[in-house]
Design a protein around this nucleic acid. Sequence first.
DNA 1: CTCTCCCT
Length: 853
Amino acid sequence: MHNSQPMPIDKVLPTLIEKLQEDGRAVLTAEPGAGKTTRTPLALLDEPWLNGQGIIMLEPRRLAARAAAVYMAQQLGESVGETVGYRIRTESRVSARTRITVVTEGILTRMLQNDPGLTGIGLIIFDEFHERSLHADLGLALAMQSRSILREDLRILVMSATLDAAAVACLLEDAPVIECKGSMYPVETIYAPTRPNELLEAAVARTVLQALNAHSGSLLVFLPGAREIRRVQSALEQEQRVGSDVLITPLYGALPQEMQQQAIAAPPAGKRKIVLATSIAESSLTVAGITVVIDSGLRRTALFSPRTGMSRLTTMRAARDSADQRRGRAGRLAPGVCYRLWSEAEDRLLAPATPPEMLEADLTPLALELAAWGASPEELVWLDEPPAAPYRQATELLRQLGALDAAGAITPHGRQMASLGLHPRLAHMLLRAVPLGLSRAACRLAALLEERDLFRGQAAANDSDLRTRLSLVMAAGEEGSPRPGAANSADVDGYALQRLLQVSGQWERQLHKIADDIQPSNEMAGGNTDDWLSFCGLLVSYAYPDRIARRRSDGRYLLRSGRGAVFRNRQLLGDEPFVAIAEVDDEGAEGRILLAAPMPEEHVYEYYRDQMEESAHADWDEHTGVVRVRRRLTLGAILLQDKPDPNPTAERITEALLSAVAEQIDTLLPWNAKSKQLQARVEFLRRLEPSWPDLTDEALARHVHEWLAPYVTGMRKRSELQSLSLYTILENRIGWARMQELQAEAPTHLIVPSGSKIPVQYEGPQAPYVSVRLQEVFGMMETPRIGYGRIPITLHLLSPASRPVQVTSDLRSFWSGTYFEIKKDLKGRYPKHYWPDDPLEATATRKVRPNKP
DNA sequence: CTCTCCCT
């Protein structure tokens, strides 16, 4: 049918077509160079089961989506937008005739959200699924649910490199797996580990020189990031260690496009190239003429930390799948060589696969999509389920942004956020900017925060004031489109500026469309407020309400979330009393503020008043012990005001007392052995039966208002707290019925055969236990059990002089064994005492010998 | 003293 020379994929296409027809879903694994991306959709186009419906193919990158569509259109002798088209964020090339649409990931999600039944689509193909991006996982989960509820005839094909196909097949309800070999040249692997005490960059430079002598052709070097790339480049250049016939080109995402092109292109005639790249060269770009790969074995990744709610850049070992992918880059055109800067022993310890994004990334966008879809994670199928802690954090943030209601359902505001198609934080900021008349500034600010940094080099590092960047963008926007490359300053990336204005313009139009529904149109304006400079901080705070920060006396900042942070360059913003932080690098105990804007104090009070908390705190008069009240105003961890209350009401006095107790529950309340034991007894049972109330110090402190408030009304002094009957109060907290149960299942005392009441200890690693003299338990056959009969009481058996003799939780075996061993010794030391030969028949005693009956 | 990659 379609022309051009045969490719490996052709051999398996008939089987694939058959399986798709029969089973409606399939997994195709193909090695690089098999031709799966461009051949498969065209081969399926005329199948009768498609019924004339369309095919959607998902590609993880715009570049790849466009290229695949162009190539397929060429194969049909057409241009893009006829039978084959594509849709990416910035462009759409489809028509009424289009049957195959290649889309990028966000687009597929939007298509499913807008029409869960995917009307007119007969097949979805997930290409490069092994990359396991968040959106591809989500897309597959949504498509599978659509198939099971709405569209039984919707066919699904998952294509991937190697990946463990069995797991995906299982997820697709036992879909058939079809395998296809590729056409790769062999690549020799050389393990060349870093020497002891040798810096990574030095080892890389050394290996580069070695490889340069040993082989011909160009070199591709994989490094974790831009910093390492610059260092290796200067190490190679400084001492002129490479000849003039060798060209060194860096390659990473933040580089201007023309420099990327230069790195990808074949070297000029008579020259060789050393390309120093990040993982960008691993799959999305093909670098021409590479025969040697040198792999540092590292990758840099944004890990989401549930502890801080922020993502943090971390350098870590690349996994085996990634290392193999990098090595494969040397075998595209001819047999090649790959140097690995680690040993064969280390190689065996590599993780088999790069963790899917689901397990490492910020899940806020995912949580919003699921809420819009109307399903919780448990209702969908996943290769890896969204992990619980980050997911919970994500839904909490969405609630704070007003996207979810208290029950976790999506709100109208949340739907508008989802339809905007940017990170929920930024979407929220855009919607909140509308009533302020700041939508244009907000769109540009969002683009600044989302896209790659506008400044390059030193300038980016030095200026952490967001207003500088925003002013630049606003000015450029007013002048009309700037000429690329001819920016006002040498440090500004003209291309980036142009892209930024284009993207933000798109959002602005979208925002106008939906904002008309919520706001009277006369309030809408592109920028009727020229006051955006002073509102910059407020806008940032809408996106990052958890990162409003206040300056402390030492010049460091305290975030609302409780974290500390400091400006890396204090000269610019370090004196502002309040800032809203857009980016903070969160390594170590204290974050470094990379990007922020000052927030006028009036804005904090005006726009966050409803989120502030007012509370009363105790400040004791040291002489009289009488409470004095201080009133505090806080926004999260930030203390805004703290001043004495000259005329406190009775309620405020009580509140102050309670908050003092909550902070010092151990010292302000009159604890004694009995009440401490009560606390421990309840905790003992709570571990067995979670329905018991939590009476630990922490829980009591948290809930002082519930259990203590009624008893302290009217009190004013510290000494009055000491007069409370704490045991009775706790008893009331537990309740009558449960107190009866407590008496039975966690008794205060154990009555032993001698008649003694021995207190049961509920604290310590061996709890519950009793310490009792051995002679008092003669005749006790079984170890007593408490806690619903589940827990034996450990017996600390003592000599007549109360010295420890034996610890046991199994009396029966003690009497029949160990007793006889220690009896001899005891008899020697306490000859007057009673040491019977049959302890189970003997009479227990508190004295030296039992009374004669 | 410096930020991986990608996408709506």
